[in-house]
Computed example of a mutant assay.
Amino acid sequence: MAQTVQVAGRAPDRTGSGPPAGRRRPRSGPRPRTRGRWGPYLLIAPTVAVIAVLILYPIGQLFWMSFHKIGSREARGVAPAENVGLENFRTVLGDPFFWRVLVNTVVSAAAMVVITMVLGTLVGLLLNRLGRKMSLLVSSGALLAWATPGISAAIVYKWLFTPGGGLVPWLLDALPDWLAGSGWDDYNWFGSRGTTYFVLVLCVVWQSFPFIAVSVLAGLKSVPSELYEAARVDGAGAWRTFWRITFPMLRPVFLVLTVLSIIWDFKVFTQLYFLSGGTANRDSFNLAMYAYSAAVAFPAKYGLGGAIALVLTVILLVFTGFYVRVMVRQGEVT
């Protein structure tokens, strides 16, 4: 009886057939397959499909057209397209007119980007200092300009500068001669390259700066207010506060906005086409207008237009790659 009690009082034997203490019993049978292995790929599949259809396929077609001689017959499938290799690119790069158009594109895009970024930043800083209701009212009104279609904005600015009835010529003609001169009522703002691009820059900046302002405002909301309070205590002015606090904190925002502005302003087409009156004024061409004119001219040269458009695409990729490299070096992108 005592032996029975002793056995019953002993701790269970864990050195036998059972698993050792602290270890789990091994699972029997094959290991289950990893769950969710294809889940992320299935989630991004629709987006990849849309990108392939709307972006990758047109770019592939553009690349193919750039190396072929394609006219109206070839575009309709009546005749096969002739492979001409690099002939289209040699024609484009060897044309002095291409380099004049490139200068128009670079200078106008640079003016648009600089003015848009400066004006948008100033408006964003202003919105940040306004009250909540007033900031909402002003930003909503500014976004109406950003949401305006390009053709609508071009129509408005065409009317503003139309000779003999536009608002701007009327205002300038109403000013004293010693202040603004005379003859503005009949002045053709769209008759020369300089004045055409002047109106174009105003139109594009008017449409673009609200997006920059709202983006800067959103970035300013993430800057700790303690930094500005410390700057005020140290006696820093508005200019020094901006360069010492605001700009370093919003550097990623400014870089992204600059890249987007360069891409958008390099390929402006709708506003320029309407303001310059189509393809008649070749002096006012930019690369987008040049590519369109070469493609739709008679006889049509879709391959040549594709080569010009591909050159524009490469230029934009170079700018984008440069700024992405700067962002990576600064540690803003991992």
Rank of each mutant, 00 (worst) to 15 (best):
L257F: 02
V48N: 00
I59L: 06
T279R: 05
G16N: 09
I44T: 08
S139D: 04
V113Q: 02
I212W: 02
D177G: 14
M289S: 03
S192P: 05
A174I: 09
A180P: 01
F190I: 07
N88E: 04
V201D: 01
E226C: 07
I315L: 08
R10Q: 11
F247Q: 09
L125R: 07
A145M: 14
P96Y: 02
F254H: 08
T320A: 11
R76S: 11
V118M: 11
F319E: 07
V50G: 01
V201F: 05
A2M: 09
V168C: 04
V106G: 03
A174R: 15
T47Q: 05
S276C: 09
W243M: 02
P224H: 04
Y187H: 09
F298G: 07
F211W: 08
S72E: 15
I59S: 00
M289C: 07
P248N: 13
R232M: 03
G303Q: 05
V333M: 11
V328F: 11
A218D: 06
R35M: 13
G9M: 12
G94K: 15
V216M: 03
A81P: 00
V253S: 08
A294Y: 12
L126M: 15
A297W: 06
F198Y: 07
I245T: 00
F161W: 06
I70S: 01
L200G: 04
A218G: 10
L200W: 02
L175Y: 11
D265Y: 08
S192N: 15
F161G: 01
G77I: 04
V314H: 10
V214F: 05
A142W: 02
N281V: 11
V78E: 12
V233I: 14
S222W: 07
D283R: 08
T334I: 11
L255Q: 14
D173C: 01
F285T: 12
G166K: 06
L54D: 00
P40R: 03
V168T: 04
A111I: 08
L312C: 00
L56S: 08
G22P: 01
Q3E: 10
V324K: 01
L255N: 13
L312G: 01
F247N: 06
L304T: 03
P299V: 08
